[in-house]
Design a protein around this nucleic acid. Sequence first.
DNA 1: CTTTACTCGACTAAAACAATCGGGTATTAT
DNA 2: ATAATACCCGATTGTTTTAGTCGAGTAAAG
Lengths: 159, 159
Amino acid sequence: MRLTTKGRFAVTAMVDLALRGGDGPVTLAGISERQRISLSYLEQLFGKLRRHALVESVRGPGGGYCLAKDMHTVSVADIIRAVDEPIDATQCGGRENCHDDHRCMTHDLWTKLNDKIYEYLASVTLGDLVESQHVKNIAVLQDKREAAQTPAGKSAAYI
Amino acid sequence: MRLTTKGRFAVTAMVDLALRGGDGPVTLAGISERQRISLSYLEQLFGKLRRHALVESVRGPGGGYCLAKDMHTVSVADIIRAVDEPIDATQCGGRENCHDDHRCMTHDLWTKLNDKIYEYLASVTLGDLVESQHVKNIAVLQDKREAAQTPAGKSAAYI
DNA sequence: CTTTACTCGACTAAAACAATCGGGTATTAT
DNA sequence: ATAATACCCGATTGTTTTAGTCGAGTAAAG
């Protein structure tokens, strides 16, 4: 499992898509603006996401992208795997730095680490992220309301 | 926590060191030969390991490196941190791709992942790796003995 | 038949990484 | 002394990966 900003961008874009998937296709131009990710880069990412059947596209005016599956059945691991294709395991499978009886002295270590990372990323779904985002927005609203009740100017938060 | 071959090499080298630390300092030239890691690269790595107080050096003929601590008190995380210095957390702390209320939509995700990775690497000590290596060597010896008992030429393993 | 918006592959700039080089210094043995 | 061993360290280099761009094309709607 490789972890780059490409994967992070893809996850962010997919959350954005999931958040507004309700009313028809979402354009990349919109995601680009909201998430500040370059349009051409998004096109590249969504090409891969589409080929991995995570999203569906609608061409022409009014077109855009939709989630291909229920957001609760898509894990973060699925998304990262789609854009960061080579899943790079332990980098120890027959390389020149492994030899003799010393071969892969640390092989198990990296394999297990990989499993742990994968396990976690596979346990979090797009739906989870969307929900926690909603919780945050509610918190923001509550903060604003509380701020409004607090006497002018001073925030209660830092007392 | 950054994960590169540099960190992997450092862990491998430290296991080698721990395995033969019994009889005095171990030379980098020896580690280089056994683990097929370039000497100059090892010098670079061990400079960092020494500055992080994970190893101690003895100069001059008969010199080399020793573990500075008991192998059971040194975790893999310690080693990787020593050589891959900037611990690169979520790459989301105030970057241009985070903005407005959407800021860090996936921030918690990456923070938690980082914690998981760190947690695992901190749970494995150099001593653990050395022990599992011993177990392997015993297994290899047993394999050889069994192979010797098997009638000539044919291995029993693939039947 | 023009606009919107996806499609695709090739290309480039910049950063990170792996590794090397060259000239040191401390210590031991002869 | 002085030669050999082996650590010390900063600067540099070559390569790969990553991030991001460009341009030409296609499908669909109005």
